[in-house]
Computed example of a mutant assay.
Amino acid sequence: MNISGGRDASVAERIARMFLEIGVVKLNTEEPFVWSSGWKSPIYCDGRISLSYPQVRSYIKEELAELIRKRFPEVEAIAGVATAGIPQGVLVADALDLPFLYVRTKPKGHGMTNIVEGEVVKEQKVIVIEDLVSTGGSSLKATAALDLSGMDVLGLISVFTYGFDDAREHFANANIPFISLSNYDVLIKEAMEQDLISATDLSSLQEWRKAPHLWKQDA
């Protein structure tokens, strides 16, 4: 596998190409996928697949770690969001030689009933790692849990995002810096260049991106 994507390819382009090549992302405008929210979608992204490919896994880990070194040099801990953000977060914490925690979707139903697992240090500066960001709702629940635990959330970084306007607004309103290594617009551009989608597909994919909650709801 050529993970370089060419000398001039950006990190976002390289990840998009890898995701298309190994099947992390699937595109289908004719037989859309259905999300748990009930939204119909022409794209399905399963970042967990990347963990099965050592070269891809290592590249993502290194780029996440390098981004954190550059943008958040004061970081003192890494937190992953359950479940897909946990393995990515562990890899990054190991690369940076930092403590790791993870945030559950809801408090554990027994024992200590924790929602944040790991050693919580008050005012410790933490970066949150997500695999995928859609609307940002679950991500911001995780950052809120860390904040309530007394930790200082510096920002959230994801491997991939759909780039919805709602997500940008939610992070801005919460005053949480958000960065993603790759995104939907770059991926669709790569899919076009590889002739994986037609001009008709592109139009449909762009329409979904503008109003995902309305796309093909009457179909």
Rank of each mutant, 00 (worst) to 15 (best):
G137I: 05
E130L: 05
A199K: 13
E169M: 02
T135Q: 10
S203L: 08
S158L: 04
I68Y: 08
V116Q: 09
M192C: 14
K189T: 09
T105S: 11
G89C: 04
I86C: 02
V120C: 13
S182V: 08
S10L: 07
W215E: 02
A16C: 02
Q206M: 07
V159T: 10
G137K: 14
T83L: 09
N183T: 04
E74N: 11
P87C: 12
A16Q: 03
A84P: 12
K40T: 05
S134P: 07
L67A: 15
A95S: 13
A211H: 10
C45Y: 14
P73Y: 12
F19V: 00
D165Y: 06
I115H: 04
R7T: 12
M192Y: 12
L96M: 03
A84V: 11
S198W: 04
A174N: 14
R104M: 07
G23M: 02
V153K: 08
R7A: 11
T135Y: 14
G89H: 06
V133P: 13
L96P: 13
T113K: 13
K210R: 14
S138E: 03
E21R: 15
G150T: 09
V121P: 13
L101E: 11
V159C: 03
A16L: 02
A172K: 15
K189P: 00
V34T: 15
G163Q: 06
Q124A: 15
F164S: 05
F178Q: 02
G23I: 03
A199H: 10
R209T: 03
I68H: 08
T161G: 07
V75K: 03
S139L: 09
